[in-house]
Nucleic acid binder design. Structure first.
Lengths: 233, 233
DNA sequence: TTGAAACTGTTGCCCTGGCAACGCAAATGG
DNA sequence: CCATTTGCGTTGCCAGGGCAACAGTTTCAA
């Protein structure tokens, strides 16, 4: 467990916490480290949930499925990220989404019971953690809110523009790089891959964007944002 | 302010709090009560946000707009509900959604600065409140998650089935009643009103559901859930 | 090296659902 | 009590995008 201290110290959940505080807090959780390899299912929609996951190393993909086999990708998480905490604190006893490993790695499962109740020994540290958790939850809700902003867009072009502009803003650079391949990006935007490819091609041809594989570049930010503002018609 | 004590006591934010605790906590907030009448804008997307809203009386509608004039209805809130707390705790300094009054009422605006920092006098009460806030935020995120589940559905029929089945389950009764009219329901599901009407008509004709105005009734729950499970094709 | 599998681009067909436009009934208000 | 507005249903038209199917490329393993 001590091996992971460098990672844990940088985690949002343990921000503003001294190494000493962390050292007394951690054993309290009785958390377990689980290694995983690519393709492993870390949790499955609907299954009973008793712990929340803290990703120590590797990448995972959070997705939502319906009976039909089609999926919606919620997001990709990396080291330090938390998953399952929303459902845990909302009190539904089961995982809301499926988490699947996108690479090998390690995840720390912290029993919800241990993390939710005021800790026995280090109550001040627990206090800080709860404050951090508050912000994490708020952020998650905001991300969901933005997500809705993407999915709800009517036209393919608008969805793409919304996504690309967001990435562009976030990267602070005209050229950026998506962690998803085409199929995944399509599932992220809730569209079909061929239709997305078609529109991407059009936008490239019109000189609005350029791309090669998973490297994208916004050629004409002006026009991109125009699409978003005067969407319809 | 004392007039509102009965409402405040029942609020989720102040749950598990004694009237005495509430009495010392409230003055700390320096909150202001604002009356409103139907159609008033309580806050507007993008505007600066310094407070969170606690609805004391009346109904409001939370919605998201884009440039094109089309809107997406996030939800309808009633007495005791909180709005704006997600953005506040996420630290974006502006309102993420627009809140518009659906009837006359009163709202309590609590400055975010006052509510986020540990209170000067009644720290134990503040503790309890933060715990409540944690749960409220988690619930909001869960609701967003469900919302995504609706919007993402591809077919009109599936969207309607998802919504109706959810309402049916929530009401625990085959007959229930929506707080929205057709136009609003369409904006809630992110579809056009005529298309929705068309599909509603079909489903009524097929004997799956029945409705009159805003009163709906699930005739054949079996078939309704079938639509959801074996969606595609 | 070579085969297989994964990833991406491309094209055509067809259906769903958006949109505009209209008719009707109920509600609202002066 | 009548006029205006609001809410709901209906219809026809048309384009956007889902789907299937195929082709070219890269990756990977045997």
């Amino acid at each position: 467990m001590d091996d992971w201290m460098p990672v844990l110290k940088k985690t949002r959940l343990f921000r503003d916490m001294s190494p000493e505080q962390l050292a007394v807090l951690l054993p309290c959780f009785q958390a377990t480290v689980r290694p995983f390899s690519k393709g492993d299912l870390l949790c499955l929609t609907g299954q009973e949930q008793t712990a929340i996951g803290l990703l120590l190393a590797g990448k995972v993909m959070v997705q939502k499925e319906d009976g039909t086999g089609s999926r919606l990708i919620i997001g990709m998480f990396g080291p330090g990220d938390l998953f399952g905490e929303v459902a845990a604190f909302a009190g539904t006893g089961h995982w809301p989404n499926t988490v699947i490993a996108d690479s090998a790695g390690h995840v720390l499962f912290i029993p919800y019971e241990k993390i939710s109740r005021p800790c026995c020994v280090a109550c001040d540290a627990h206090q800080v953690m709860m404050r951090n958790m508050l912000q994490i939850l708020a952020d998650k809700a905001m991300i969901m809110n933005q997500r809705i902003g993407f999915i709800r867009r009517k036209g393919m072009r608008e969805k793409l523009a919304a996504y690309l502009f967001d990435q562009y803003r976030q990267a602070g650079n005209r050229t950026f790089h998506t962690p998803m391949n085409r199929e995944e990006l399509a599932d992220y935007l809730n569209v079909s891959r061929p239709s997305m490819s078609r529109e991407l091609g059009r936008m490239k041809h019109e000189g609005i964007i350029d791309y090669f594989k998973s490297s994208f570049s916004v050629v004409d930010p002006e026009r991109l944002s125009t699409i978003l503002q005067q969407a319809g018609h």
